[in-house]
């Protein structure tokens, strides 16, 4: 059995890209036709593909000023809909290392945690300010300190939020849950043997 070393994620730094709009669902982040693959490897270039085609080059992911972005800045309920991990995988493999938004859909947020992609929230007005700041100065470096939630963009500073267990998962490297889950094999087996629908209904 090979052990995966714990990868602590303490800091993300780099240029940003704003993608405006509420309720951007995972079908839009990665259209279902790209789920017809048995690996995640080739997803990177296809993030937001249909939205990009419709905007004919005017989507931020096609804007050369935002090439090389590390921090994606989004609005309300980002990642709603399908549980496809392909959505955060496409963003991660396209170079995104953190997402800052007004709010996130729950399964998407959990999938991001599971693959080491921190998501932080800011109030709507601050998201608007950060998005405008990046649009005006695409080279501005956004720095996120995961432990404190502090986000800086040039001279602007924001206080990002993240649930405590999720923050700890990133800073300790436990975002890759499997290693921790495997540690309690005996306790798992005890639950397995205790549940009546597993153990059989008539045994005491």
């Amino acid at each position: 059995m090979t052990e995966t070393p714990l990868a602590r994620i303490a800091r993300v730094e780099g240029p940003g890209v704003p993608v405006r709009g509420n309720d951007i669902d995972t079908d839009r982040i990665i259209p279902a036709r790209y789920l017809r693959e048995i690996t995640f490897e080739n997803l990177g270039p296809h993030a937001f593909e249909d939205d990009r085609a419709q905007l004919r080059g005017r989507h931020p992911f096609d804007d050369p000023r935002f090439a090389g972005a590390r921090v994606l800045v989004v609005n309300r309920n980002f990642g709603s809909g399908s549980s496809r991990e392909h959505a955060p995988q496409a963003l991660l493999r396209g170079g995104i290392a953190a997402i800052v938004g007004e709010s996130f859909a729950e399964i998407f947020f959990g999938n991001c945690q599971a693959i080491g992609l921190p998501c932080l929230t800011l109030p709507a007005a601050q998201i608007e300010s950060l998005q405008s700041l990046i649009e005006e100065d695409p080279a501005v470096v956004i720095a996120i300190d995961i432990a404190s939630g502090a986000i800086t963009a040039g001279r602007a500073a924001y206080q990002g939020q993240m649930p405590e267990p999720v923050r700890r998962a990133f800073t300790t490297g436990a975002w890759d849950a499997l290693t921790a889950l495997q540690e309690s094999d005996d306790e798992i087996h005890a639950v397995y043997r205790r549940l009546p629908y597993v153990r059989g209904w008539r045994r005491p």
């Binding site: 849950a177 499997l178 798992i188």
Partner: peptide, 20 residues
Amino acid sequence: FGIGTSQVRDVLATQTMAAA
């Protein structure tokens, strides 16, 4: 629960998952 693929891996490997 609906889960992502990394959690499918976790459930296959341990029959458990991390959840809030």
